[in-house]
Simulated scan of single mutants.
Amino acid sequence: MPIDQHGDAVVQGVSIRSLPKVSLHDHLDGGVRPATIIELADRIGLEVPSTDADDLADWFAEKSDSGSLVEYLKTFDLTTAVMQTADGLRRVAREFVEDLAADGVIYGEVRWAPEQHVTAGLSLEEAVEAVQEGIEEGEDAAERSGRDIRVGQLITAMRHTDRSLEIARLAVAFRNNGAVGFDIAGPEEGFPPSNHRAAFDYLASEFFPTTVHAGEAAGLDSIRSALIDGRALRLGHGVRIAEDLDVVSRSGEEVLVQFGDLARWVRDREIPLELSPSSNLQTGAIERWGTTLEDHPFDLLYQLGFSVTVNVDNRTMSRTSLTRELALLAETFEYDLDDLEAFQLNAAAGAFLPIEEREELIELIADGFER
């Protein structure tokens, strides 16, 4: 299956880009256009590795392909540096939504950490307001171009700092002004969700939904803590849940698997896995199974009935799109339109929306794939 320069491909005669999609795991500071980085950096006198947008895109991809989450995260120093003003945040958020819409996304949740965007004097509240303004401008721009999209904010706390309760309160304060959920992100190993139990207790008391980065750079204990301490309704990545699966035997396409208690719980409770194939390769999240997409346990998890969803994680760092991720999966595992639709339906069902709106989203996806 040829994938064109924009990451598109055709499955059963249908362009993947044209299909309605749901994006659950997409970082704002990981999806800044290289050209925008160059322009905003020039305004504040910040040196960048290249003033050519294509070369800068290459730089991000090269630096991110390290096999280490810690090294991967260092590339964010540049993107966050140009996102310290209301104007910068507003522009990045607007363009982010426009790029989602161009990718065929009809509902997205964008995660970002306000605490990382206050070095130039913005308050946490001003930062969230600026991003929300940008999101709404992007939604309006998409509508003018004939595309319908809705985007909610996942307010994120950094797991290696001590501001999670403060950020949790911020998220709840904006629940009627753009915020749809809460997350913790950053270096996973050594910073378990249990460190932020006070924040998660508060969120639970407010009935505010959480997704937690777990099962990427750390294993089953991190996932267990996300579910128990974080009351996570979704797992950010969660790919290492496959470590709790024991492949007993293989015979052709038949695979006999023994489940651990944690894996069975996640599968049976249909807790969505926010899988990000290209990013998982770059950060070494699947190194236990191999170093190519063919080695990714995505297909095993899918065939075993886990609620798998497909995500980009960071468009700029992985130089990718949701269309491209789906095309790569379709090419690698020979998926058809029914499979791609299943991934979108899983994501819609796991969206942090009221059930009526999730049902409407599911109908839009079903109609789009049927057409």
Rank of each mutant, 00 (worst) to 15 (best):
2 P>C: 00
3 I>E: 02
7 G>V: 02
11 V>G: 04
15 S>G: 12
19 L>M: 14
23 S>A: 14
26 D>R: 03
27 H>E: 03
28 L>S: 10
40 L>F: 12
40 L>D: 02
41 A>G: 07
41 A>V: 06
43 R>A: 11
45 G>A: 00
46 L>N: 04
52 D>E: 07
58 D>E: 14
58 D>C: 05
60 F>R: 08
64 S>V: 11
65 D>K: 15
66 S>C: 06
68 S>R: 09
69 L>W: 10
77 D>V: 13
80 T>D: 11
83 M>E: 13
83 M>Q: 14
86 A>D: 10
92 V>F: 02
93 A>F: 11
99 D>K: 04
104 G>P: 01
105 V>M: 05
108 G>S: 07
110 V>T: 06
110 V>N: 06
115 E>W: 08
120 A>M: 10
121 G>Q: 02
122 L>F: 02
122 L>P: 01
127 A>D: 14
128 V>E: 11
132 Q>L: 00
138 G>P: 07
141 A>P: 00
153 Q>F: 00
153 Q>A: 15
157 A>M: 00
159 R>G: 09
162 D>M: 01
162 D>V: 09
166 E>S: 13
167 I>K: 15
172 V>Y: 09
174 F>N: 06
182 F>T: 05
186 G>I: 15
187 P>Y: 07
192 P>A: 09
193 P>V: 04
196 H>Y: 13
199 A>T: 11
204 A>K: 12
206 E>S: 07
206 E>A: 08
206 E>F: 09
209 P>H: 06
214 A>V: 11
214 A>E: 12
214 A>Q: 04
216 E>W: 01
222 S>G: 11
224 R>L: 02
227 L>A: 07
228 I>Y: 13
231 R>Y: 12
238 G>K: 08
239 V>G: 06
247 V>A: 00
249 S>W: 11
259 F>Q: 13
268 D>R: 09
278 S>M: 03
278 S>D: 07
278 S>Y: 07
280 N>S: 14
281 L>N: 12
282 Q>W: 12
285 A>K: 03
289 W>V: 08
290 G>C: 03
291 T>P: 04
297 P>M: 02
300 L>K: 04
303 Q>E: 14
303 Q>A: 14
305 G>A: 09
306 F>M: 04
306 F>W: 13
316 T>V: 10
320 T>E: 01
321 S>M: 10
322 L>F: 03
322 L>A: 06
330 A>M: 06
331 E>L: 07
339 D>K: 05
342 A>I: 01
353 L>R: 08
356 E>Y: 00
359 E>M: 13
361 L>S: 03
366 A>R: 08
368 G>R: 12
